[in-house]
């Protein structure tokens, strides 16, 4: 649940609705390519993950009509789109797409998202922390990795990604009055 005053960027509802009929099969090849490219560029990520690389992580962007199952196996990493997350996952991470991307991008702090209730987590917390810390240390440039093979066709997507990043930057500069304990 988003608390009042939360400023994590949200995918607009009409866009989410337009994405609903999208055949998930179409997402599989680019996501498979993305997983392999991240593996190739950031082998150090798996050292930090350690035994947790064998776990299954559910990533649930709450403002999209689908979710993802991440299996960060060093030999065969995969990101699989699903309509609904299966129940037998080790970890489930749910929050707006902007929050999930912002943690990868280094724009958001995961603990702060948790404190504000913008992020919900369930399951194996050791695996969750290992993934969060490994990804944070890897400084993954998702935009460059995902879009570079697309050439000129990448431009509109690039602009969309920049808008999300800019929104995250505004959040970073956002100043809220907090309660004072004493």
């Amino acid at each position: 649940m988003q608390p009042a005053g939360s400023v994590v960027p949200q995918v607009p509802a009409p866009i989410a609705a337009a994405l609903r009929p999208l055949p998930l099969l179409l997402l599989r090849p680019p996501l498979a390519m993305l997983a392999v490219r991240i593996r190739d560029r950031h082998p150090e990520l798996f050292e930090r993950l350690g035994p947790h690389a064998a776990k299954r992580f559910g990533l649930d962007p709450t403002d999209l009509p689908f979710a993802f199952v991440l299996e960060p196996r060093p030999a065969a990493p995969s990101v699989t789109p699903v309509r609904q997350l299966p129940r037998d996952l080790d970890v489930r991470i749910a929050g707006p797409l902007g929050a999930l991307l912002g943690m990868v991008d280094g724009a958001f702090d995961g603990d702060a998202l948790f404190f504000s209730r913008s992020l919900q987590v369930e399951g194996d917390m050791e695996a969750l922390l290992a993934l969060r810390n490994a990804v944070d240390d890897a400084c993954i440039d998702l935009r460059r990795i995902a879009l570079s093979p697309l050439g000129p066709a990448a431009d509109p997507l690039d602009r969309a990604f920049r808008r999300v990043r800019a929104a995250a930057g505004r959040v970073a500069a956002h100043r809220t009055e907090s309660r004072s304990w004493n």
Binding site: A112, F115, V171, R175, T176, E177, S178, R179, S180, N182
Partner: peptide, 23 residues
């Protein structure tokens, strides 16, 4: 003094024991 409020635990800040008060 408010720039980092959104990063705080419980979304709340305190001066802790530095400024002791009774509740």
């Amino acid at each position: 003094t408010a720039a980092l409020a959104d990063l705080t635990e419980g979304q709340a800040t305190t001066a802790g024991a530095y400024r002791k008060t009774w509740r």
